[in-house]
Design a protein around this nucleic acid. Structure first.
Length: 542
RNA sequence: CGGGGCGUAGCUCAGCUUGGUAGAGCGCCUGGUUUGGGACCAGGAGGCCGCAGGUUCGAAUCCUGUCGCCCCGACCA
């Protein structure tokens, strides 16, 4: 046990030593020594951290479990916000803001809710510091103890429903369709940048409705908004479905999710939409007079996506060179790298680069000219590739002479067996200037589609309809795993047993229209043999 | 919370076993030569060796305590 635990450390140390030696032996050496990103095949989770670091998306902060989102990472989040917010508004929602702090007593008003979140709450107990008697700094002033402790919101259902109670009297006050952009804190034991951090940014929608039917429709509508965003903006294919009772949001009657497949075959829950029934209305005594004049409890939904989406984005598209940003989420679409030898060439190349920049900006594209001195063009290529910029335009003396532009795509769809050089030449094209400028947007659109198609192909390759336990075990233990479509009719207890045994879990029970060939219809549960009406998706997960 | 590991330059780490002038690579700064896939030369800046005690003529190194971080596990809307 202890040896196993020590193993990765040892490995890392050895490797660092080797790298160091190599570096010393062959100074200024080849690509191998310049490698800053661990290949996915070697260590997927280190690859992930390397990509985040090289693209300067985020850093670990001085606070345990919390990250600093750097400008490159925040720019992606801002784009996501803009796209999502427009979709929320288009479906009739408005934004508002509720407090960061929630009285402890609020949380406990909904029994399941408090049970789900109690173990990961940050608690505020005092409101003042005082100087230490030995002058060595400050300490909590015991005199300043709060009468009732406050928790830092892990989610806002309780504080929001305490407000809704004040707002709702009649069916005429419904529906309430509110979204909040906020940060929340969940004191997670183990964290990973973007995927699970103690504090994260998200949006949370909280709606109140007259009827169950209307609330359920809202739940499905927002799930569809998330699907549309994931697939058409992030280029991440997702499976929509219902969580099992054991995996439901604390306090929900139904939890819907979108699940995406990462490049290691594991599933990532990318968004959730919950039907909360009358649970929170009951907890906060929120009733309204309905059309028949009778008092009734309000029906609720909540739904959210978080900065975790950035993790999904990375693990769906990026490669061993670094980040790949889908064009629709990029703030910089094109980087221009000038190439020159003499000062005279430099002046001419810069003039052309400025002109190209202006023309592309006029098309509404984000453009940067990399005018850094003393960096070889190749170094700049690697730099921008690791940051995920979709397109690069190289402008050199050759282009000035020929009236051409060299347009290089960040990626092309792989052809099996193709070596790196061949792939590179497929990425680059010398095009007549006018044609290049006219085609940039088309190329970006193509790339957006290619990313989605590539992810879809990958998921298809790692998806299996499975009918026997032997096959199931083989799929996950020997064949690298992925999404297994199986029949399930077990209890929550049985679900836990299976999860422990195979390290897999039920991601969701997919909604209609998504079943793979041969995966439709009823059958016997894979684990218990009991009859099951439809298949669920099982996978290892993040 | 249990088990393991690590704190030395901005980053990755060596030095510690056997105490004696603080090191390497990358990065950074200056100047020059370079520039179509990770340039080179020369010069330079940068350290309370996590923190607090102790042993010693002398501590990055030995001892004690403490704080922090990472990994494995448990936990995880």
């Amino acid at each position: 046990m202890s040896d196993q635990a020590a193993e990765p450390q040892k490995k890392q140390k050895q490797q660092n030593q080797q790298n160091q030696q190599k570096g010393q032996q062959q100074k200024g050496g080849g690509k191998q020594d310049e490698r800053r990103i661990t290949p996915r095949a070697e260590d997927y989770s280190r690859w992930y951290l390397d990509v985040v670091r090289e693209a300067q998306l985020a850093d670990h902060s001085a606070v345990r479990g919390c990250m600093v989102i750097r400008p490159n990472g925040y720019a992606i989040w801002e784009k996501m916000q803009r796209e999502l917010d427009a979709r929320f508004k288009a479906t009739g929602h408005v934004n508002a803001y509720f407090p960061l702090f929630i009285p402890v007593s609020f949380l406990s008003k909904e029994a399941q809710h408090v049970e789900g979140f109690a173990k990961e709450c940050a608690v505020v107990t005092h409101h003042r510091l005082r100087a230490k008697s030995d002058g060595s700094g400050v300490e909590v002033d015991p005199e300043s103890k709060l009468e009732e402790p406050l928790i830092v919101r892990p989610t806002s259902e309780t504080i929001i429903w305490s407000a809704y109670k004040e707002w709702i009297q009649s069916y005429r006050d419904l529906p309430i369709l509110i979204n909040q952009w906020a940060n929340v804190v969940r004191w997670e034991m183990r964290t990973r940048l973007f995927l699970r951090t103690a504090e994260f940014l998200w949006q949370e929608g909280h709606t109140a409705h007259e009827t169950e039917k209307e609330a359920l429709e809202e739940t499905h509508l927002m799930l569809e908004v998330y699907r549309d965003f994931a697939e058409n903006v992030m280029a991440v294919p997702v499976i929509r479905g219902a969580k099992t009772p054991g995996e439901r949001f604390a306090g929900a009657l139904e939890s819907l999710s979108i699940e995406a497949m990462m490049q290691d075959g594991r599933a990532l829950q990318a968004g959730t939409s919950h039907y909360l029934g009358q649970n929170f209305a009951r907890a906060f005594d929120v009733t309204f007079q309905n059309r028949e004049g009778k008092r009734e409890l309000v029906y609720a939904t909540s739904w959210g996506v978080s900065t975790r989406l950035i993790g999904a984005l990375i693990m769906t598209h990026s490669d061993d060179t670094g980040l790949i940003i889908p064009p629709k989420l990029a703030t910089t679409h094109v980087v221009i790298v000038p190439i020159y030898k003499t000062d005279e060439e430099k002046a001419r190349v810069y003039t052309e680069a400025d002109a190209v920049e202006a023309e592309l900006k006029a098309q509404g594209l984000g453009v940067v000219i990399d005018k850094r001195e003393g960096l070889a063009p190749g170094a700049k290529y690697y730099d921008w590739e690791s940051k995920g910029v979709p397109l690069r335009i190289e402008i050199g003396p050759k282009d000035l002479e020929n009236g051409s532009l060299c347009v290089a795509r960040r990626f092309v769809i792989e052809i099996p067996g193709e070596d790196e050089k061949a792939q590179r030449s497929r990425k680059k094209a010398f095009l007549p200037r006018a044609e290049a400028l006219a085609k940039i947007k088309t190329i970006l659109d193509e790339m957006q589609k290619d990313l989605f198609q590539r992810a879809l192909n990958f998921r298809a390759k790692k998806t299996r309809v499975i009918n026997t336990l032997e096959e199931y075990e083989k799929f996950f233990k020997e064949e690298g795993g992925g999404f297994a479509w199986v029949h399930w009719a077990g209890t929550p207890e049985e679900e836990e047993v299976i999860a422990k045994k195979y390290q897999t879990s039920i991601r969701n029970a997919p909604l209609d229209g998504q079943f793979p060939e041969g995966g439709e219809g009823a059958g016997p549960c894979l684990f218990t043999g009991r009859p099951s009406a439809r298949r669920v998706v099982m996978a290892e997960s993040y």
